[in-house]
Simulated scan of single mutants.
Amino acid sequence: MMREANFAGKSEKLKSSEPPAFDLVAMDIDGTLLNSEHEVPQENLAAISAVRSAGVLATLVTGRSTFSLVPVFEQIDLDIPYICSGGAEITDPSTGESIDRRVIARSDLEFIVTTARECKIAMFFSLPDGIYYEAPPGSREDWTPSRAYQVIKVEDILSENTAKAVKIALYGDPDRLSQIETTIRQHGPAVHLAYPLEVFLDVTHEDANKGAALIRLVNHLDVSLEKTLAIGDADNDLSMFNVAGLSIAMGNAAPQVKAAADRIAPTNDENGVAWALREIVLSQNNG
């Protein structure tokens, strides 16, 4: 049975008036659009189709790289640019070309890699030709590889062509990730750090996060940020919650994410995205 949505929220402006009709819906993928079986429920697909028919644009905003989006794009078609790699890239789905890319400087990469090796933390690099993986001795290696794309394991990630690296996903136990996060913040370069999951810490360019990328995408599409709806479930969604006109946290989101949202939807296994699109977007745009 679908749980009742909680309409409590952070935004004072919404207490005095209803949110405006929407121009754009920006949806996170894992824990949001996808259910726990990593599938896009048919109810979500139908709701996305309905908002498009109503003249509302819909896109994805994800920490995943383009390569790891292959199984998602087998289930959903996009007709406008999407945000990936935690905000480091905005990509045109019709051409596969990047509209905007924020590359991590080589000196910053060297610091992150050296520190990760010392902390025994595995690293995934998102590069233009694939996802590369280095596992220092003693690091956690229990991740499950995808059948949809290849992850290339190397002994020394810095020996690869990292000139266009946009994201480093650090993989390890939460305590080790907390340790390296502290080290980077205290002694490292000015980069953006975000947790898409408790066992992953994403490192991107200091100007690369979901919120900053959403602003760039809205400008590219020439739509209103105030009329943009953001839906997500994790800490790395908070930056887009802060800039979107309305934010919705999934029912399965962490407490701090729910506290930052304007609305709370049912969980990803209860078709929370479909609920948000029907009850918030379609009701406003058709009202």
Rank of each mutant, 00 (worst) to 15 (best):
S239L: 02
L229Q: 02
A254Y: 03
R263G: 06
A259T: 12
M240D: 03
A253P: 05
L246G: 01
L238A: 01
L221E: 00
D262K: 00
A234S: 15
D237K: 12
S239A: 11
L225M: 15
A259I: 11
A260P: 01
P266D: 12
D235K: 04
A261W: 12
V243Q: 03
D235R: 12
L229D: 10
A260I: 10
A244N: 13
A253C: 11
A253M: 11
I248H: 04
A260M: 10
G245D: 09
D237A: 13
N252I: 12
A244Y: 13
L238W: 01
S247A: 15
A249H: 02
S239Q: 04
R263P: 05
M240P: 03
R263D: 13
T228S: 04
I231N: 02
A261L: 08
A249Y: 10
S224E: 08
E226I: 06
A253E: 00
P255F: 14
L238G: 01
D233W: 03
L225T: 08
V257F: 05
A259V: 08
D235S: 12
R263N: 11
D237T: 13
G232Q: 04
M250D: 08
H220F: 15
V257G: 00
K258Q: 04
N252D: 14
L221H: 01
S224H: 04
G245N: 09
D237E: 12
D262W: 07
